[in-house]
Design a protein around this nucleic acid. Sequence first.
DNA 1: GAAGATGGGGCAGCCATATTGACGTATCTA
DNA 2: TAGATACGTCAATATGGCTGCCCCATCTTC
Lengths: 147, 147
Amino acid sequence: MRRGVELLFFGYTRLTRAIDDGLAEHGLGRAHHRALYFVARQPDLTISELLKILAITKQSLGRVLTDLAERKLVETRTGVVDRRQKLLRLTAEGVRFEAQLFDALRTSLASAYAAAGQESVTGFWRVLEGLIPAEDKAMVIALQKDI
Amino acid sequence: MRRGVELLFFGYTRLTRAIDDGLAEHGLGRAHHRALYFVARQPDLTISELLKILAITKQSLGRVLTDLAERKLVETRTGVVDRRQKLLRLTAEGVRFEAQLFDALRTSLASAYAAAGQESVTGFWRVLEGLIPAEDKAMVIALQKDI
DNA sequence: GAAGATGGGGCAGCCATATTGACGTATCTA
DNA sequence: TAGATACGTCAATATGGCTGCCCCATCTTC
């Protein structure tokens, strides 16, 4: 049990560290990456959807998105079905940058996957899925749909 | 691949949130818990060992330990083999508090383990172990020894 | 069409957690 | 005795979160 806690801690922190240098080159932090990542994952995401995913406040997200917009990594369009909404998208440069960061993550994960074997990967997913509270599950499943 | 990144993010963040309320009752944050946790795990840990585990600076850890000492959750003794060292230990109250926090983590993890099955748990561990950089592995393995 | 709900933005101020760099003291080792 | 090491501490700074409050535009409902 303690082993799971520890491995999760080390695994998560060490994986996230893999992209700090890339972010720092643009003067960005991990919070920016999280937003960038989920916008990359679901183009035309709305602000409120992103808020639910990240589970932070509007203010915190606002600052992050302002930074990303200033660097021309993210752009917004007015919603089509509801003009109050803003649809978030990466710019071409944003796509390039996110891909570069993701590459560092993929490299780390790929070697862990390879060392552990496909069967282990399935177990890894199963356990992590079980850690997500019921009320967040629908949101995470929605993400998986368009892998 | 993206699935792994996302599940790790959601799994880790949601698990850590499970203890925020317990910590807040003592006016503590997650940083305090991390220190508390590893001191619980390895009584008589030295400062420098804890620094390696947490991978933060001496300043940051110093503040955290001061807070824990003020609340009489952690105490230090002078090292026996090397009098420059300080050996960290939980007080009785610290043991009690850490156990209470750990209980919240254990409950979450246990239900995830149960839902996923023992085979999955092994895979979960294997993948996470693969995420730990070679230079940190010895340290993590040292922790496992006295489970 | 008016009233209220919702999506988004913003201000001010605060807190927690991390950083760097420099310096001091006690203690150990060669 | 000289230098390395373990720990503590100063000051300044950055990041990323929070609350509470108020605003506007737009959609929905009556």
